[in-house]
């Protein structure tokens, strides 16, 4: 079993506009990309569990083969930079993805 962080070249989060956060998982090896996609673990249920989200909070999960990347976008509970926000740029919300185990 590999951890996702060991397979991915880039693992990051960032605002996609002030009302959403987007998680990017990018690979430099088509084989690693294929392995992660095909094992099926990156799905709505996994993300909801990891991030304590409801399925309707997830805007989309897209697999982009040409870019060897996976993108997950979800709604912020608080918009960027207003009261109760904790991460104005949304740049530190990716860590829970790292320990996902890939069979």
């Amino acid at each position: 079993m590999d951890r996702l962080v060991d397979l991915a070249k880039v693992l990051r989060s960032k605002n996609s506009g002030p009302f959403e956060i987007t998680l990017d998982i990018l690979f430099d090896d088509p084989e690693k990309y294929r392995k992660v996609v095909e094992c099926g673990i990156i799905n709505v249920q996994t993300i909801c569990q990891l991030y304590h989200l409801k399925p309707e909070d997830i805007c989309n999960i897209v697999f982009y083969q040409k870019g060897l990347g996976i993108k997950i976008t979800y709604n912020r509970s608080v918009s960027s930079g207003t009261l109760r926000d904790r991460d104005v740029y949304g740049a530190q919300q990716h860590a829970p993805l790292m320990d996902i185990l890939i069979p």
Partner: peptide, 18 residues
């Protein structure tokens, strides 16, 4: 620039990769 660095940037800060 590498294919990964440029493709990664195409992803950047957007809700959808392509």
């Amino acid at each position: 620039c590498t294919t990964v660095s440029v493709a990664a940037h195409t992803f950047y800060e957007k809700d959808h990769p392509y």
